[in-house]
């Protein structure tokens, strides 16, 4: 179980706001990540989930607030989707050696841990969706991360595939002791594997243990009740209790 309040946090965001094309995608978000805890960010399309992750890795500038990372924090990042142009020939092993070259031993260990040790010499462009995500996971593990960030890493996988993927994430956390921050649409699958859930809709609607969040009125307003939450996501009520005039104008910004 995660150790709380004894160590310095890995990430501490205060009053974080991000504006894209004049729309405020995130406003006043506070976030604190402790070592070795699994935190899942849920929220409807356009709620700023990916933006939150990308702001932590420094890919989007903040309009207000601050993000403090633990000095020297090693982050492993698994992006939402990665298109490799078929004109770019690259093997799995070469891909894992970018930008820093990795030893054969480390490459094998990372592939093994991600469950795809046989793919080393395959071309990236010829992998299936599930294999590709696991290679991305292996790549993130190579830096021996203290924090693993996953942005909807199971997009395009079927439910069994996603469940297996998240089970692997939990194993990895147990093995490496790294913290995990992930975004997902598959609420019921992910919530079971999370220590803490943050429900996001431009701002933090509610957060806490999975059971707490699942029964919170703010969460139900966004996703409906019960385990059908994942479905409700796609037809969520636009006039939920936390309505803000700019909450639904930035679907394209994510």
């Amino acid at each position: 179980m995660p150790v709380r309040h004894h160590m310095t946090p890995l990430v501490e965001a205060k009053h974080l706001s991000v504006a894209m094309n004049g729309n405020e995608v995130l406003h006043g978000v506070d976030l604190r990540l402790e070592p070795s805890e699994i935190v899942t960010v849920v929220g409807p399309n356009g709620s700023g989930k990916s933006t939150l992750l990308r702001s932590i890795i420094g890919a989007v500038p903040l309009s207000h607030g601050s993000i403090r990372l633990k000095p020297g924090l090693r982050i492993g990042y698994v992006p939402q989707k990665l298109h490799i142009d078929p004109t770019l020939p690259i093997t799995v092993a070469r891909f894992l050696s970018l930008p820093k070259s990795a030893s054969d031993q480390d490459t094998n260990a990372a592939l093994e841990r991600a469950g795809v040790r046989d793919l080393k010499n395959r071309q990236m462009a010829r992998l299936s969706g599930g294999q590709f995500q696991r290679v991305l996971l292996a790549r993130a593990l190579l830096s021996n991360p203290e924090l693993l960030i996953l942005d909807e890493a199971t997009q395009g996988l079927d439910q069994a595939g996603s469940a297996a993927f998240y089970a692997q994430i939990e194993d990895i956390r147990t093995e490496l002791g790294c913290a995990v921050l992930m975004v997902s649409h598959e609420l019921h699958v992910v919530m079971a594997a999370s220590d803490r859930v943050i429900c996001l809709n431009g701002h933090v609607c509610c957060e806490g243990a999975p059971e707490h969040v699942a029964s919170a009125p703010e969460y139900r307003a966004l996703f409906g009740s019960g385990t059908q939450g994942a479905l409700a996501l796609y037809r969520h009520e636009h006039n939920h209790s936390h309505d803000h005039e700019h909450s639904h104008e930035h679907e394209a910004a994510e």
């Binding site: 990042y77 770019l88 930008p99 960030i149």
Partner: peptide, 19 residues
């Protein structure tokens, strides 16, 4: 070379690697 290749593959991957 390595930084250019990483950026070409994916801009976010590059960011996460400090490029």
């Amino acid at each position: 070379w390595s930084a250019l290749l990483t950026t070409t593959l994916n801009a976010e991957l590059a960011h996460a690697s400090g490029i």
